[in-house]
Computed example of a mutant assay.
Amino acid sequence: MKHARWLVLVAAAVSIGLLLSHFLTRGGSGDAASVQLSPVQPPQAAYASPRILAVMPLSPTSPAPSAAMRARFETAANYAAFIHDAMQRPSEGGRFYALMAFEKCREVAALSAAPVLQGRPDAVLAARKTIADLTQRCRGVMEQFPSEHLFTEALLYSNARSPDALLIERGTLRPATKEASESDIARALATQDPYFIAATMDANLDFVTDRLGPEFRNGEEQALLYQAMAVAGCEIAGNCKGHYRLALFCAAGEPCVHTDLAAYVKQGVPAESQELYERTLGRILQLARGRTADQPGQ
């Protein structure tokens, strides 16, 4: 159980938002490295009260501008082809999704050639299927971009010519101030893109701890905070069930027990911390829905 808890912390440390921050702050060389990504221009209503983060709810008749790109990302048969196409579609947030596809393939490429999977039969079967599927979908990606540096350079070079709808200015999702954090969260909510909202909440987690509870104000309970964010991220994106990182955990030697990331994380929360975990998870999700965390029941 202790091993599982530490793996959850590792997962939180390399989650979508922090990965994007890591990639985009490394940059490339020459002109590409000095590019400042252009800001997204969401509806002005999103800035009316950044403390409240009020935005119009997503409706079936008003899909997010990146909805089609998100669908292509989730169903792409080959990520190398997807990345090539997505990089040419900045108005749809294509480069944001290209970055997620690249990182997923980079993680898969780091697996041993023939990982031994052990544990609950249904979880082992699910992990095997996920790894086989991702291995097939990722063919050609690492040959196209052998390193983070080369991918980041290509990303920044492309964005200098035509800014992506989801990649924000400063070249990173991690803002420098609390005020910038509030603005970035509001902007993410205005895009109505669940993956981007999850990434932005993750990257801004340190800036919203004062709204999550006094337990986190002095840097305490960090493990639980990251656990709650890991689950909030997959709940926002809607991919907790069958999350690919569970398969990666199994391939890395963790027993295959769960097929739901939320259940996997919760097993590592101490019994005496369960109430705080649930409350923290709920408050993060409130903020991700454009509500203040101090308004219970909304």
Rank of each mutant, 00 (worst) to 15 (best):
T130Q: 15
E272V: 00
A132V: 05
R72E: 14
D122H: 08
M229I: 00
P57D: 15
Q274V: 10
T75Y: 03
R26L: 11
Q274G: 11
L156T: 01
A98L: 00
Y195R: 10
V265Y: 04
A80N: 12
G17K: 04
P270Q: 03
A203D: 02
L189C: 05
A199K: 01
A32R: 06
P255I: 15
I284P: 11
L212T: 03
Y47A: 11
A247L: 08
T130W: 11
F82A: 08
A288G: 11
A110G: 05
D184A: 15
P194R: 07
Q88C: 06
R187T: 12
L125E: 15
R139W: 00
L20F: 05
D202R: 04
S162A: 15
P270F: 06
L18D: 10
Q136N: 14
C234A: 05
A101E: 02
A32V: 01
L287C: 00
Q136C: 04
L287A: 13
S29A: 11
T280W: 09
D202N: 12
L189K: 03
V208R: 14
A32I: 02
D206T: 08
M142F: 10
C240W: 04
R217K: 12
W6E: 15
E103P: 02
L189A: 04
W6M: 12
V40A: 11
G297D: 08
D31Y: 03
P296N: 08
Q44R: 08
D202G: 12
F196R: 14
A293Q: 14
Q88A: 14
L18Q: 10
K241R: 08
D260Q: 03
A109E: 14
L281D: 05
A109H: 08
L117V: 07
S158F: 15
T191K: 03
L248V: 09
G140C: 07
S34W: 13
E107M: 13
F96A: 04
A132I: 03
I52Q: 15
C256S: 12
T280A: 05
A271I: 14
L281T: 01
L7M: 15
L281S: 04
E92I: 09
V14R: 14
S21R: 10
A45Y: 00
L246N: 06
C256Q: 13
V35D: 02
E92V: 00
A45R: 11
V208A: 15
L167D: 07
I197L: 06
Q222A: 13
A247S: 14
T191Q: 07
P146K: 02
V269P: 10
E153K: 12
H149A: 11
